[in-house]
Design a protein around this nucleic acid. Structure first.
Length: 448
RNA sequence: GUCCCCAUCGUCUAGAGGCCCAGGACGGAGCCCUCUCACGGCUCAAACCGGGGUUCGAAUCCCCGUGGGGACGCCA
């Protein structure tokens, strides 16, 4: 069986945490099983979809490193949906309905008030030809519903196990709006069938849709057993609130602005809710090798931004110079080298922070002098260049003997004078980068 | 309201009747390393939602509560 997966965002906003997780997991599954990955833009909702968002989604996926082998856009395939609708009509599975949105809303409210599930009553099925003519004569255009069977729908969900939907709990889904446009429910099935999708991995908010879509698929001549479904539990935010409440507003843009590395996000989202340890991974290939859909549980995991930021820091601490060189240069660190990166990376929470240490090493700063006498002594004992990592130990050993200082009393003033900061990377590494001239001046209390 | 799903350390989870006075990872605490923070090493604290059953024996099976999530659109 050919493995083919897809991610199907609607271009009505930027990708957010939930979207990204779904996209990533589908992508990982495809790559893990040597399958293809399709980016499908679900833009049947004309009012809310824009090309600008479509572009933003492509950029966001590219930023994450999720590439696609195939691309399709639902608005380009309207003829296909119309053709499929004709086949359903011919099979007697598509029927016109004339209720207005308001009338349907009223029906639902009435049912709810009677403690009944708000399922469509199929009143339109009983309409006579005369009644239909009257409706159309009155200017009412029909929308079309798919006639669900009276048999239960079953499938073996890759995450939830055997799932069974009893008839009567589902409304006949509207496939075509009164203006003739297909709805997601329909376009999605036609695409999955015609584009040869083998696995649909999505959030559990789609389980009821799957039941209906399996029937539509079969009515279209597709084989439901050739399409595997997996429904993952939705994410909640750290407080446990449902995903749509707060996480829905956490977009890729926000995350990027917070200094989140794409691989930090990928590392978290690929494992959150699984039994695997969540650890920083430098490359998607590692996540591909580790990916197992069966490791996902059925309960709602919490997405915690603090956890993401910690993972982000850990990822940064292990990043290679090659991986960040260009980005550092773009940050204005001209001529940045491996030594600098390796000395500094362990102290970064986000890549941008490297600029702080770049200034400490190459820029001018006003030193903090606690004891000018001691600082001048230290300056006087500064060894001649060339300097390397051993210089620091040699120098401070010498200072220790001469000044009788040790521990914090010895080191703290040196750190303050040299970097003007309480904390930072090891001075043994930093000192050679700062260089003798600058160190000398700073110890003497001069801005340098 | 109806239906579906879920319920083990703070978090993600292992656990498919005895191997569990419950294991791992992240986080937390302590110690070590150390000029600081981080890294690393070692150690510790930390959980089976409640109540009924079934069973010689239940975290594991059943029922009922409770709590959480989801679905019920001419949105996706």
């Amino acid at each position: 069986m050919t493995v083919a997966l897809r991610v199907a965002p609607s271009p009505t906003g930027r990708l957010h945490v939930g979207n990204i997780r779904t996209a990533l997991i589908n992508w990982l599954y495809a790559r893990r099983h040597g399958g293809t990955f399709l980016l499908r833009i679900d833009d049947t909702d004309e009012e809310r979809s824009t090309r600008a968002y479509e572009e933003a989604i492509k950029e966001d996926l590219a930023w994450l490193g999720l590439d696609w082998d195939r691309f399709s856009r639902q608005s380009d395939r309207l003829a296909r949906y119309a053709e499929a609708a004709q086949r359903l009509t011919a099979a007697g599975r598509l029927y016109p309905c004339y209720e207005t949105a308001e009338e349907l809303e009223l029906k639902r409210k009435t049912l709810l008030a009677r403690r009944l599930p708000p399922v469509y009553d199929r009143a339109a099925l009983k309409l006579t030809a005369e009644e239909k003519r009257r409706h159309e004569g009155a200017g009412r255009l029909p929308h079309y519903r798919f006639l669900l069977s009276d048999r239960p729908v079953e499938w073996d969900d890759l995450v939830r196990g055997p799932v069974r939907f009893e008839p009567g709990h589902l409304s006949d889904p509207v496939l075509l709006r009164a203006d003739g446009r297909p709805l997601y429910m329909f376009a999605s099935v036609v695409d999955d069938l015609e584009l040869g999708i083998s696995h649909v991995i999505r959030g559990e908010d789609h389980v009821a849709n799957t039941a209906a879509q399996i029937e539509i698929l079969a009515a279209l001549g597709g084989k439901p057993e050739e399409l595997a479904f997996a429904h993952l539990p939705l994410l909640a935010d750290a407080s446990g609130a449902g995903f749509s409440k707060r996480l829905g507003s956490l977009s890729v843009g926000d995350l990027r602005a917070s200094g989140v590395e794409p691989m930090a996000l990928n590392s978290l989202l690929a494992k959150l809710g699984t039994s695997d340890a969540i650890e920083p991974r430098q490359a998607l290939a590692e996540l591909v090798a580790e990916f197992e859909l069966a490791h996902f549980g059925r309960s709602t995991p919490k997405f915690d931004l603090d956890e993401l930021m910690r993972l982000n820091a850990r990822l940064l601490h292990a990043m290679s110079f090659e991986a960040v060189r260009e980005r550092l240069e773009r940050l204005g660190l001209r001529g940045v080298d491996r030594d600098f990166w390796e000395v500094v990376r362990g102290n970064l929470a986000r890549l941008d922070d490297a600029a702080i240490w770049w200034r400490v090493v190459h820029g001018e700063l006003a030193p903090l002098i606690e004891d000018s006498g001691f600082a001048r002594q230290a300056a006087a004992l500064l060894p001649p260049e060339p300097w390397d990592r051993a210089t620091w130990a040699a120098w401070t050993e010498h200072l220790k003997v001469v000044t009788q200082r040790s521990g914090k009393a010895l080191f703290h003033p040196l750190r303050l004078a040299l970097t003007a900061r309480e904390r930072g990377p090891e001075l043994a590494g930093l000192l050679p980068l700062i260089g003798r001239a600058r160190a000398l001046a700073r110890l003497n209390g001069e801005a340098a």
